[in-house]
């Protein structure tokens, strides 16, 4: 599954640790999501989308 988390985080100028703090997860979790090693749980995916003010399908692409 592809995602735009790194791109969206970059636009806000946040570090992985800052995003992790906002989401209540570790920096390593953010890094694993961005590099595609780990697909987040549904609650975390919704939290990420809500944080960026987007719909979940605008952040995560399950077809890729």
């Amino acid at each position: 599954m592809n995602n735009r988390v790194r791109e969206l985080r970059g636009k806000l100028g946040w570090s992985q640790a800052q995003l992790g703090d906002e989401l209540g997860v570790s920096r390593q979790t953010v890094n694993a999501i961005e590099t595609g090693k780990y697909d987040p749980s549904l609650p975390l995916a919704f939290a990420i989308a809500r944080l960026f003010g987007l719909a979940i399908e605008q952040v995560f692409n399950p077809d890729a």
Binding site: D21, V25, R27, R50
Partner: peptide
């Protein structure tokens, strides 16, 4: 660095 030891707040 893992701040995940404590219960999380609402995002």
């Amino acid at each position: 660095e893992d701040a995940a030891e404590e219960p999380r707040n609402e995002v």
